[in-house]
Amino acid sequence: MVLGSFLGCQDRQTSKEVELITAEEMDSLVELGKVQLIDVRTPEEYAEGHIYGAVNINFLDDNFEELIEQVDKSKPVAVYCGKGGRSAKCASYMKKAGFTKIYDLNGGITEWKYKGKDLVQ
């Protein structure tokens, strides 16, 4: 029971450190050039359409950690995937790796498209 309480507190702390944002909030951050934008889907998914300005770093790639380490940790970063699972794992890793500000698109690119936001190919 004590372990469950500890893990519950730890999850709440992480959610405060990684900010889930809406498609509208992501759009504003991208428009203002306020974030480094990372698409953590596969290259095939990325090629089907991605958010303008996004760099593709495949979360499932064997050298994912090496690639993510090349991103500037001192600048805000926003991540997204298909629906939110991979980006949540990526954001968690990035927090442990010392990134200072991390945004995660709630609902991923699925939500982005649902809100009528543009994609580029």
Score class of each variant (00 low, 15 high):
E65A: 10
G53C: 07
D72V: 02
D11I: 03
E66A: 12
D27T: 06
Q10W: 07
H50G: 00
L29I: 03
V55D: 07
G53E: 08
T42H: 08
I102F: 11
V30T: 03
E24F: 07
S15I: 03
P43T: 04
E17L: 14
M1L: 07
G107P: 12
L29M: 11
G82R: 13
G108F: 05
I21Q: 08
L119C: 06
E69N: 10
D27H: 10
R86Y: 03
E19R: 15
P43M: 11
I68A: 05
Q10S: 15
V30E: 11
K96C: 03
I57L: 13
N56Y: 02
D39K: 01
G33Y: 10
A97K: 14
D11W: 03
L60S: 05
Y80E: 14
Y93P: 02
I109A: 08
S5G: 12
V40M: 06
M1T: 01
Q13P: 03
G53I: 01
E44K: 13
T100L: 12
Q70D: 13
I21R: 12
V79S: 05
Y46K: 06
D62C: 00
K115A: 13
E48R: 11
F6M: 13
I51Y: 02
G49V: 01
Q13S: 06
L105Y: 01
M26V: 06
S28M: 10
W112S: 11
A23M: 08
L60P: 00
Q36V: 09
P43H: 07
K73S: 10
V35D: 06
G82E: 14
S15C: 08
G108R: 05
D61W: 00
F64P: 06
G116A: 08
G107I: 01
L105N: 05
G4H: 10
V30H: 04
Q10M: 14
L37F: 04
E17C: 11
V55L: 14
A88H: 04
Y80Q: 07
A78K: 10
S28N: 08
E65I: 06
K95Q: 15
T100W: 08
V120N: 01
K113S: 11
E31L: 07
F64I: 00
E111A: 15
C90H: 00
A97S: 15
S28C: 04
V18M: 10
K113F: 01
Q70L: 15
I51L: 06
P43K: 07
